[in-house]
Design a protein around this nucleic acid. Sequence first.
DNA 1: AATGGTTATGCAAGAGGATTGCATAAGAGG
DNA 2: CCTCTTATGCAATCCTCTTGCATAACCATT
Lengths: 138, 138
Amino acid sequence: MQKDVRQQKILGLIRSKRIGTQEELRAHLMRAGVAATQSSVSRDLEELGVVKHQGSYTLPQSRDGHSARGLLGLDMAGESLVVAKCESGMATAVAVEIDRAHVSEIIGTVAGDDTIFIAVNDRKAQRATVKKIWEIFK
Amino acid sequence: MQKDVRQQKILGLIRSKRIGTQEELRAHLMRAGVAATQSSVSRDLEELGVVKHQGSYTLPQSRDGHSARGLLGLDMAGESLVVAKCESGMATAVAVEIDRAHVSEIIGTVAGDDTIFIAVNDRKAQRATVKKIWEIFK
DNA sequence: AATGGTTATGCAAGAGGATTGCATAAGAGG
DNA sequence: CCTCTTATGCAATCCTCTTGCATAACCATT
Protein backbone atom coordinates (compact mmCIF):
# COMPACT_ATOMS: atom_id res chain seq x y z
CA MET A 1 0.00 0.00 0.00
CA GLN A 2 1.13 3.44 -0.90
CA LYS A 3 -0.75 5.49 1.60
CA ASP A 4 1.29 5.02 4.76
CA VAL A 5 4.57 5.64 3.01
CA ARG A 6 3.18 8.73 1.40
CA GLN A 7 1.85 10.09 4.66
CA GLN A 8 5.16 9.51 6.40
CA LYS A 9 6.96 11.37 3.62
CA ILE A 10 4.49 14.17 3.93
CA LEU A 11 5.17 14.46 7.63
CA GLY A 12 8.87 14.54 6.97
CA LEU A 13 8.50 17.13 4.26
CA ILE A 14 6.34 19.56 6.15
CA ARG A 15 8.67 19.31 9.11
CA SER A 16 11.78 20.03 7.12
CA LYS A 17 10.63 22.43 4.44
CA ARG A 18 8.34 25.38 4.05
CA ILE A 19 5.53 24.12 1.92
CA GLY A 20 2.85 26.47 0.80
CA THR A 21 0.55 24.51 -1.49
CA GLN A 22 -0.55 20.97 -2.06
CA GLU A 23 0.88 21.07 -5.57
CA GLU A 24 4.23 21.99 -4.13
CA LEU A 25 4.00 19.10 -1.71
CA ARG A 26 2.99 16.88 -4.59
CA ALA A 27 6.10 17.88 -6.52
CA HIS A 28 8.34 17.03 -3.58
CA LEU A 29 6.66 13.67 -3.24
CA MET A 30 7.25 13.01 -6.91
CA ARG A 31 10.91 13.78 -6.51
CA ALA A 32 10.98 11.38 -3.56
CA GLY A 33 9.55 8.71 -5.83
CA VAL A 34 6.01 8.79 -4.53
CA ALA A 35 3.38 9.54 -7.13
CA ALA A 36 0.24 11.22 -5.89
CA THR A 37 -2.54 13.45 -7.06
CA GLN A 38 -3.63 16.60 -5.35
CA SER A 39 -6.77 14.79 -4.25
CA SER A 40 -4.77 12.29 -2.30
CA VAL A 41 -2.56 14.93 -0.79
CA SER A 42 -5.60 16.84 0.34
CA ARG A 43 -7.06 13.77 1.98
CA ASP A 44 -3.74 12.91 3.58
CA LEU A 45 -3.34 16.32 5.13
CA GLU A 46 -6.81 16.05 6.53
CA GLU A 47 -6.08 12.64 8.02
CA LEU A 48 -2.77 13.70 9.46
CA GLY A 49 -4.31 16.72 11.07
CA VAL A 50 -1.98 19.07 9.28
CA VAL A 51 -3.05 22.71 9.24
CA LYS A 52 -2.04 25.66 7.14
CA HIS A 53 -0.55 28.31 9.33
CA GLN A 54 0.89 31.58 8.08
CA GLY A 55 0.98 30.34 4.55
CA SER A 56 2.65 27.00 5.09
CA TYR A 57 1.62 23.56 6.23
CA THR A 58 2.52 22.54 9.72
CA LEU A 59 1.56 20.16 12.46
CA PRO A 60 -0.54 21.74 15.16
CA GLN A 61 1.32 21.94 18.47
CA SER A 62 4.58 21.30 16.67
CA ARG A 63 7.29 20.17 18.99
CA ASP A 64 10.01 22.72 19.47
CA GLY A 65 12.91 20.40 19.93
CA HIS A 66 12.15 19.29 23.46
CA SER A 67 10.75 15.84 23.86
CA ALA A 68 7.22 15.04 24.77
CA ARG A 69 7.32 13.98 28.39
CA GLY A 70 10.32 11.69 28.07
CA LEU A 71 9.59 10.02 24.77
CA LEU A 72 12.31 10.58 22.21
CA GLY A 73 11.40 8.29 19.36
CA LEU A 74 9.62 5.22 18.13
CA ASP A 75 10.91 2.42 15.95
CA MET A 76 9.66 -0.90 14.72
CA ALA A 77 11.63 -4.11 15.08
CA GLY A 78 10.73 -7.24 13.19
CA GLU A 79 7.02 -7.46 12.80
CA SER A 80 5.81 -7.69 16.34
CA LEU A 81 7.84 -5.24 18.33
CA VAL A 82 7.75 -1.50 18.69
CA VAL A 83 10.71 0.03 20.46
CA ALA A 84 10.39 3.34 22.26
CA LYS A 85 13.48 5.35 23.06
CA CYS A 86 13.16 7.58 26.08
CA GLU A 87 15.22 10.02 28.05
CA SER A 88 17.49 8.34 30.54
CA GLY A 89 15.50 6.98 33.45
CA MET A 90 12.17 7.93 31.95
CA ALA A 91 11.23 4.63 30.34
CA THR A 92 9.08 3.40 33.20
CA ALA A 93 7.14 6.64 33.40
CA VAL A 94 6.57 6.67 29.66
CA ALA A 95 5.52 3.03 29.74
CA VAL A 96 3.00 3.71 32.47
CA GLU A 97 1.47 6.43 30.35
CA ILE A 98 1.34 4.15 27.32
CA ASP A 99 -0.26 1.42 29.38
CA ARG A 100 -2.84 3.81 30.69
CA ALA A 101 -3.89 4.70 27.18
CA HIS A 102 -5.04 1.12 26.59
CA VAL A 103 -3.98 0.96 22.97
CA SER A 104 -5.89 -2.06 21.77
CA GLU A 105 -3.10 -3.41 19.58
CA ILE A 106 -0.61 -3.54 22.44
CA ILE A 107 -0.20 -6.95 23.99
CA GLY A 108 2.36 -6.00 26.58
CA THR A 109 5.20 -3.61 27.43
CA VAL A 110 8.45 -3.99 29.29
CA ALA A 111 10.46 -0.95 30.26
CA GLY A 112 14.17 -0.71 30.99
CA ASP A 113 15.94 2.51 31.83
CA ASP A 114 15.62 4.41 28.59
CA THR A 115 13.98 1.87 26.30
CA ILE A 116 10.60 0.20 26.16
CA PHE A 117 9.74 -2.94 24.26
CA ILE A 118 6.16 -3.04 23.13
CA ALA A 119 4.74 -6.32 21.90
CA VAL A 120 2.10 -6.36 19.17
CA ASN A 121 0.76 -8.95 16.78
CA ASP A 122 1.84 -7.97 13.30
CA ARG A 123 2.95 -5.21 10.97
CA LYS A 124 -0.43 -3.69 10.83
CA ALA A 125 -0.69 -3.48 14.59
CA GLN A 126 2.83 -2.08 14.61
CA ARG A 127 1.87 0.80 12.37
CA ALA A 128 -1.29 1.49 14.29
CA THR A 129 0.59 1.41 17.58
CA VAL A 130 3.29 3.81 16.48
CA LYS A 131 0.65 6.17 15.23
CA LYS A 132 -1.41 6.01 18.42
CA ILE A 133 1.52 6.40 20.77
CA TRP A 134 2.73 9.29 18.76
CA GLU A 135 -0.72 10.82 19.16
CA ILE A 136 -0.57 10.42 22.92
CA PHE A 137 2.73 12.22 23.25
CA LYS A 138 2.50 14.79 20.52
CA MET B 1 -19.20 -10.46 8.89
CA GLN B 2 -19.64 -13.76 10.63
CA LYS B 3 -16.33 -13.96 12.34
CA ASP B 4 -16.82 -11.73 15.36
CA VAL B 5 -20.12 -13.30 16.28
CA ARG B 6 -18.63 -16.74 15.93
CA GLN B 7 -15.64 -15.93 18.09
CA GLN B 8 -17.83 -14.46 20.79
CA LYS B 9 -19.96 -17.58 20.79
CA ILE B 10 -16.83 -19.67 21.02
CA LEU B 11 -15.67 -17.75 24.05
CA GLY B 12 -19.03 -18.22 25.67
CA LEU B 13 -19.06 -21.91 24.90
CA ILE B 14 -15.62 -22.73 26.19
CA ARG B 15 -16.35 -20.82 29.36
CA SER B 16 -19.60 -22.59 30.07
CA LYS B 17 -19.01 -26.11 28.81
CA ARG B 18 -16.21 -28.63 28.72
CA ILE B 19 -15.26 -28.85 25.10
CA GLY B 20 -12.73 -31.40 24.01
CA THR B 21 -12.49 -31.14 20.24
CA GLN B 22 -12.99 -28.62 17.51
CA GLU B 23 -15.70 -30.76 15.94
CA GLU B 24 -17.56 -30.69 19.22
CA LEU B 25 -17.26 -26.94 19.31
CA ARG B 26 -18.43 -26.82 15.73
CA ALA B 27 -21.54 -28.80 16.61
CA HIS B 28 -22.40 -26.41 19.41
CA LEU B 29 -21.96 -23.48 17.09
CA MET B 30 -24.29 -25.10 14.58
CA ARG B 31 -26.91 -25.53 17.25
CA ALA B 32 -26.48 -21.86 18.11
CA GLY B 33 -27.13 -21.00 14.50
CA VAL B 34 -23.57 -20.27 13.50
CA ALA B 35 -22.26 -22.35 10.63
CA ALA B 36 -18.54 -22.96 10.59
CA THR B 37 -15.97 -25.38 9.33
CA GLN B 38 -13.29 -26.92 11.44
CA SER B 39 -10.76 -24.75 9.62
CA SER B 40 -12.45 -21.62 10.83
CA VAL B 41 -12.76 -22.94 14.34
CA SER B 42 -9.09 -23.77 14.40
CA ARG B 43 -8.16 -20.31 13.23
CA ASP B 44 -10.54 -18.72 15.71
CA LEU B 45 -9.04 -20.59 18.63
CA GLU B 46 -5.62 -19.53 17.52
CA GLU B 47 -6.68 -15.90 17.31
CA LEU B 48 -8.43 -15.97 20.63
CA GLY B 49 -5.40 -17.48 22.28
CA VAL B 50 -7.36 -20.46 23.46
CA VAL B 51 -5.33 -23.36 24.75
CA LYS B 52 -6.16 -27.00 25.22
CA HIS B 53 -5.55 -27.83 28.82
CA GLN B 54 -6.29 -31.16 30.44
CA GLY B 55 -8.31 -32.25 27.46
CA SER B 56 -10.54 -29.25 27.09
CA TYR B 57 -10.27 -25.82 25.60
CA THR B 58 -9.75 -22.90 27.92
CA LEU B 59 -8.41 -19.37 28.04
CA PRO B 60 -5.03 -18.92 29.70
CA GLN B 61 -6.41 -16.00 31.72
CA SER B 62 -7.46 -15.79 35.34
CA ARG B 63 -10.90 -14.33 35.27
CA ASP B 64 -11.24 -13.49 38.93
CA GLY B 65 -8.36 -11.11 39.59
CA HIS B 66 -7.07 -13.70 42.03
CA SER B 67 -4.15 -15.27 40.33
CA ALA B 68 -2.09 -18.32 40.42
CA ARG B 69 0.93 -17.07 42.34
CA GLY B 70 1.07 -13.75 40.53
CA LEU B 71 0.36 -14.87 36.96
CA LEU B 72 -2.75 -13.29 35.52
CA GLY B 73 -2.66 -14.35 31.92
CA LEU B 74 -0.70 -15.32 28.86
CA ASP B 75 -0.78 -13.91 25.35
CA MET B 76 1.14 -14.45 22.17
CA ALA B 77 2.60 -11.65 20.09
CA GLY B 78 3.84 -12.11 16.56
CA GLU B 79 5.38 -15.52 16.21
CA SER B 80 8.23 -15.49 18.64
CA LEU B 81 7.01 -13.81 21.76
CA VAL B 82 4.86 -14.91 24.64
CA VAL B 83 3.72 -12.15 26.95
CA ALA B 84 2.84 -12.90 30.54
CA LYS B 85 0.75 -10.46 32.52
CA CYS B 86 1.32 -10.52 36.24
CA GLU B 87 0.14 -8.77 39.34
CA SER B 88 1.89 -5.49 39.89
CA GLY B 89 5.42 -6.05 41.08
CA MET B 90 5.25 -9.79 40.66
CA ALA B 91 6.77 -10.15 37.22
CA THR B 92 10.26 -10.93 38.44
CA ALA B 93 9.05 -13.59 40.85
CA VAL B 94 6.90 -15.20 38.19
CA ALA B 95 9.78 -15.09 35.73
CA VAL B 96 12.04 -16.82 38.20
CA GLU B 97 9.53 -19.59 38.54
CA ILE B 98 9.17 -19.92 34.80
CA ASP B 99 12.92 -20.02 34.40
CA ARG B 100 13.19 -22.70 37.05
CA ALA B 101 10.83 -24.91 35.08
CA HIS B 102 13.32 -25.13 32.22
CA VAL B 103 10.72 -25.06 29.48
CA SER B 104 12.73 -26.27 26.52
CA GLU B 105 11.14 -23.93 24.00
CA ILE B 106 12.00 -20.82 25.97
CA ILE B 107 15.04 -18.99 24.70
CA GLY B 108 14.98 -16.14 27.17
CA THR B 109 12.81 -14.01 29.42
CA VAL B 110 12.77 -10.36 30.42
CA ALA B 111 10.65 -9.16 33.32
CA GLY B 112 9.41 -5.65 33.97
CA ASP B 113 7.08 -4.72 36.77
CA ASP B 114 3.95 -6.58 35.80
CA THR B 115 4.85 -8.01 32.40
CA ILE B 116 7.27 -10.64 31.15
CA PHE B 117 8.46 -11.06 27.58
CA ILE B 118 9.37 -14.60 26.73
CA ALA B 119 11.28 -15.25 23.54
CA VAL B 120 10.73 -18.46 21.59
CA ASN B 121 11.50 -19.65 18.07
CA ASP B 122 8.23 -19.96 16.24
CA ARG B 123 4.50 -20.42 16.44
CA LYS B 124 4.76 -23.98 17.49
CA ALA B 125 7.07 -23.16 20.34
CA GLN B 126 4.75 -20.33 21.27
CA ARG B 127 1.80 -22.63 21.67
CA ALA B 128 3.79 -25.20 23.57
CA THR B 129 5.18 -22.52 25.87
CA VAL B 130 1.80 -21.04 26.72
CA LYS B 131 0.51 -24.47 27.47
CA LYS B 132 3.41 -25.45 29.66
CA ILE B 133 3.55 -22.22 31.61
CA TRP B 134 -0.18 -22.31 32.17
CA GLU B 135 0.15 -25.81 33.51
CA ILE B 136 2.84 -24.74 35.92
CA PHE B 137 0.64 -22.06 37.44
CA LYS B 138 -2.73 -23.70 37.17
C1' DA C 1 6.08 -47.67 12.60
C1' DA C 2 1.28 -47.87 11.40
C1' DT C 3 -3.32 -46.24 12.55
C1' DG C 4 -7.13 -43.30 13.76
C1' DG C 5 -8.51 -39.11 15.53
C1' DT C 6 -7.53 -34.32 15.86
C1' DT C 7 -5.65 -29.91 14.47
C1' DA C 8 -3.07 -26.73 11.33
C1' DT C 9 -2.35 -24.63 6.89
C1' DG C 10 -1.50 -23.60 1.58
C1' DC C 11 -4.29 -22.19 -1.84
C1' DA C 12 -7.85 -20.05 -4.36
C1' DA C 13 -12.32 -17.84 -4.51
C1' DG C 14 -15.45 -14.40 -2.94
C1' DA C 15 -16.91 -10.35 -0.31
C1' DG C 16 -16.42 -6.06 1.39
C1' DG C 17 -13.61 -2.01 2.33
C1' DA C 18 -10.22 1.15 1.44
C1' DT C 19 -7.74 3.95 -1.84
C1' DT C 20 -7.30 6.63 -5.76
C1' DG C 21 -7.93 9.62 -9.87
C1' DC C 22 -10.89 12.40 -12.41
C1' DA C 23 -13.80 15.99 -12.78
C1' DT C 24 -15.74 19.54 -10.59
C1' DA C 25 -17.48 22.24 -6.78
C1' DA C 26 -16.27 25.20 -3.07
C1' DG C 27 -13.33 28.60 -0.91
C1' DA C 28 -9.83 32.44 -0.58
C1' DG C 29 -7.60 36.45 -1.99
C1' DG C 30 -7.12 40.03 -5.22
C1' DC D 1 -15.38 38.53 -11.35
C1' DC D 2 -11.07 35.90 -12.04
C1' DT D 3 -7.42 32.93 -10.55
C1' DC D 4 -5.29 29.92 -7.56
C1' DT D 5 -5.96 26.55 -4.21
C1' DT D 6 -8.37 23.03 -1.76
C1' DA D 7 -12.26 19.73 -0.95
C1' DT D 8 -15.34 16.10 -2.46
C1' DG D 9 -18.91 12.91 -5.16
C1' DC D 10 -18.44 9.21 -7.97
C1' DA D 11 -16.68 5.18 -10.12
C1' DA D 12 -13.03 2.06 -10.93
C1' DT D 13 -9.60 -0.53 -8.88
C1' DC D 14 -6.87 -2.52 -5.55
C1' DC D 15 -6.37 -4.96 -1.19
C1' DT D 16 -7.24 -7.28 2.71
C1' DC D 17 -9.88 -10.32 5.19
C1' DT D 18 -12.50 -14.37 5.49
C1' DT D 19 -13.68 -18.84 4.27
C1' DG D 20 -13.90 -23.71 2.57
C1' DC D 21 -11.58 -27.40 0.61
C1' DA D 22 -8.14 -30.49 0.53
C1' DT D 23 -4.38 -32.13 2.71
C1' DA D 24 -0.47 -32.03 5.66
C1' DA D 25 1.14 -32.25 10.31
C1' DC D 26 0.57 -33.82 14.76
C1' DC D 27 -0.34 -36.97 18.67
C1' DA D 28 -1.50 -40.82 21.32
C1' DT D 29 -2.10 -45.71 21.19
C1' DT D 30 -1.19 -49.99 19.76
